[in-house]
Amino acid sequence: MTPVAVMVGANRIVPAAGIIHPLGGADLSPDEERALRRRIVERALQALQTEVVGPTVFTGESPAAPPGGAPAS
């Protein structure tokens, strides 16, 4: 859903793990799931500490994609 978030103008966007469990994964072990959740939250905290000029998707590869940057999922 990151394209929608970009379209409506959310400024700091972190791709998550999916619509039915954005911060988890039903196929993962409890430990793996918690680690995944932690990575997404930490990326959100990183995004909050990054200056942006418009809707920006924070993919794993670079700290800040260009405005309107490509969604990761």
Binding site: I20, H21, L23, G24, R34, R37, R38, I40, L45
Partner: peptide, 18 residues
């Protein structure tokens, strides 16, 4: 899935840890 584990939606466990 989020009813099974609400943290899949609201990551309280992880933010508390942080």
């Amino acid at each position: 899935y989020v009813k099974q584990d609400p943290h899949r939606l609201v990551p309280l466990d992880v933010v508390r840890e942080l």
